[in-house]
């Protein structure tokens, strides 16, 4: 879907991005991960031509973007940024309606689409007539997302979309984000410097350092097959949490005790990661959960069962 070939960008003498190549598949959620200043934003902005590369080509759906009208191109790509970039002098409604207006949609179509979106993003109806400064940070970020999604563009670029939010809000918006049906149809490139966020949301992750991509791969690949010491060290600090995130119930199924299932317990499927199962366990009553495999088999688990299954799994599958 998005093809980046040998792209380089200089700012004066400073090489912001050097000879980057990357293919992003349709409906893929690719994360650009790296410390501040490594060139993530620059890479992202070259995809909608907010920044023009010095060399290399970028094409979307096989068409070189350099040959397209940049304004028309941008209208077909959603863009969400950390500071929301909402227009302070526009109401929320007007903010969301910017691109439909540029595309000369009739107002009925625009309005019904806005209604649909604010419901999906659980924004209150009254906020439509309000101005951005009257909304909370989390709400503003949702409006930013609604503005990017309103015309249902196939590609979505997101630059640290949750970066400005406090931890609690971030976690809840991330969860909504994962659950949002609209987003599953889209090709998304998201920038973040939070490793856990990358592992939580990414199908694949490109880890960047000083303008180059060090490794691109699934979270599991990065964790268990790091391309070099840089990747390994980058992840080491949060290794356990990341392992919890990339390992699913399905992976450790055989290490879980066969438990008798009481019917009133909450039931989850085996796609859940160890991390989110543990998160869920924290909030369920009597600290147990029922998990179900794709074959319809059920097991009851608690904290100890999960963690010991996980360590047994780790010991028997030495990835290194």
């Amino acid at each position: 879907m998005i093809e980046i070939k040998g792209v380089t960008k200089y700012f004066g003498n400073n090489t912001a991005v050097q000879d980057i190549s990357l293919n992003i598949a349709e409906r893929e959620n690719l994360i650009l991960l790296g410390t501040s200043g490594c060139g993530k934003t620059t890479t992202l902005k070259m995809i909608n031509r907010l920044i023009e590369p010095d060399s290399g080509t970028i094409s979307i759906s096989g068409k070189n973007i350099a040959e397209q009208n940049s304004e028309l191109l941008r209208r077909s790509i959603g863009y969400v940024m950390q500071n929301t970039g909402l227009f302070p002098h526009y109401t929320i409604e007007q903010n969301i309606a910017v691109v439909p207006k540029l595309l000369k949609w009739d107002s009925k179509k625009t309005n019904s689409r806005i209604e649909e979106l604010i419901e999906k993003l659980s924004l209150p109806q009254i906020c439509l007539k309000q101005f951005p400064h009257q909304l909370s940070g989390g709400q503003q970020q949702r409006v930013g997302l609604a503005r990017a999604l309103v015309t249902d563009p196939p590609v979505l670029l997101m630059d640290e979309p949750f970066g400005a939010l406090d931890n609690v809000t971030r976690a809840s918006i991330q969860a909504e984000f994962k659950a949002l049906e609209e987003l599953k149809r889209k090709t998304i490139v998201m920038v973040t410097h939070y490793v856990q966020e990358a592992f939580e949301l990414g199908d694949r992750i490109s880890l960047m350092d000083k303008g180059i991509i060090v490794q691109t791969g699934t979270p599991k690949e990065l964790l268990y097959n790091p391309a070099n010491d840089f990747v390994k060290e980058f992840l080491d600090g949060q290794r356990l949490a990341l392992e919890f995130k990339v390992t699913t119930i399905k992976d450790v199924w055989s290490y879980l005790p066969n438990g008798n299932a009481a019917s009133d317990q909450e039931k989850i499927n085996d796609e859940y990661s160890i991390w989110s199962t543990l998160e869920l366990l924290k909030s369920t009553k009597n600290k147990t959960l029922r998990v179900e495999s794709i074959h319809g088999e059920c097991k009851t688990v608690d904290f100890t069962a999960i963690t010991s299954a996980f360590s047994n799994y780790q010991n028997n599958n030495s990835h290194e």
């Binding site: 909608n48 209208r75 540029l102």
Partner: peptide
């Protein structure tokens, strides 16, 4: 605010549009 003008550009507004509808009013 730079972020606002950048957002305007990113949404596909022309330079004139950005000037008349975003920069001058603000």
């Amino acid at each position: 605010d730079n972020h606002v003008t950048e957002a305007a550009k990113a949404l596909g507004m022309s330079k004139w549009h950005v000037l008349l509808h975003v920069e001058l009013p603000l």
